[in-house]
Design a protein around this nucleic acid. Sequence first.
DNA 1: CTGGATCCCTCACGATACTG
DNA 2: CAGTATCGTGAGGGATCCAG
Lengths: 214, 214
Amino acid sequence: MARRDYGQYCGLARALEIVGERWALLIVRDLLVGPKRYTDLHNGLPRVPTNVLATRLKELEQAGVVTRRVLPRPASGVVYELTERGRDLEDAVIALGRWGARELAEPRPGEIATPSSVIMAMRSTFRPGRAHGLTVDYQLNSGGIALQIRIDHGRLTVTEGTLPRADLVIEAGAGLRPLISGEIEPAEAVRNGSVKMSGGDPALLDRFVEVFRI
Amino acid sequence: MARRDYGQYCGLARALEIVGERWALLIVRDLLVGPKRYTDLHNGLPRVPTNVLATRLKELEQAGVVTRRVLPRPASGVVYELTERGRDLEDAVIALGRWGARELAEPRPGEIATPSSVIMAMRSTFRPGRAHGLTVDYQLNSGGIALQIRIDHGRLTVTEGTLPRADLVIEAGAGLRPLISGEIEPAEAVRNGSVKMSGGDPALLDRFVEVFRI
DNA sequence: CTGGATCCCTCACGATACTG
DNA sequence: CAGTATCGTGAGGGATCCAG
């Protein structure tokens, strides 16, 4: 790691030496959602060459950001997970993700959204100040991805999967971003069909866009 | 920019496409302090090849992060400065810098600290919650760099230069980091000579480490 | 199947020299 | 002062292959 250093006695430079390499922060993003197998990581980041993925994981492991753990039986295999040091990157990942979210217009051709990326997007756009004391469960379906979004006394948890007992089920594809960015009002989005909802009080959708906002 | 994209419809990926290239965020860090000439940037980042610096500036300009401005006379020349979009990166830069600061032990051989890096380090370690309503002026001398650190009713401003009317002048070289990280108590640092102070109430040094902390 | 390792090719980066 | 030009190297991209 002597060749890639920046020669600066500076926290930012140190951070970039560790997680500034290509793909590194996207790997961290996926692991912030939870431990993952090599194959899961590769599925979530299909454009990363396998050698680069293997190299990054070793670098991150040596830097103390990631640990490699061999699963006990019966579920044999290997999972990668963040260390506490790695989880401390969440603030930085969210700050960068929020900044970059303003560049998101239409998806570019061939571009994908993965469960992990959507989960982190929801975490990034969450405004704790607007969710104070709030308790509500949503299920969000977007682009073939089903998310459980639970707010419990103002605390957010986002997981993949369906949530049969959700207070509101939101169905949104490309219409989700304009909704969260405030380009379009919830009522208008429902009217033009870009967002559908079912199973609950329509006012919960207003709550949703109040709480999740770019 | 077609080859370097990540193929992910994700705010973090977008951010990395724009400011994830090598040296880009360090350039932003320096510009967060204020507009700079090409030569100033190069002095602050001596290890960046000039062609890379020129390329990054063009990329950042095209991305709307930086503007290039020709100075009116008499001070002819060119300065680069952040756009508002670029200034919005401050949160992310500070988050990353704070994370990386925990890796800072001793400076590695040949490693330098520049005025801009120290200024951003002070901004990163500033804890607004601990400075509520506080008004005090420090001058900090560290490694040949003189900084004005002004806290006005809890608002921080850090600039290069001396501050003759400072409430306290702090003289610290390598002893500054252990002080801010809490590894060493202020009184102990003064006693062993790693930190000197003059011109004010010694209690102001305790204030200092209270307000600036990793 | 998972969890990588290997090979080749290209281009971005690094170092240095040079110019309006 | 503010860059451009040139050239060598190695990291990243892409496909394939292999061990448990």
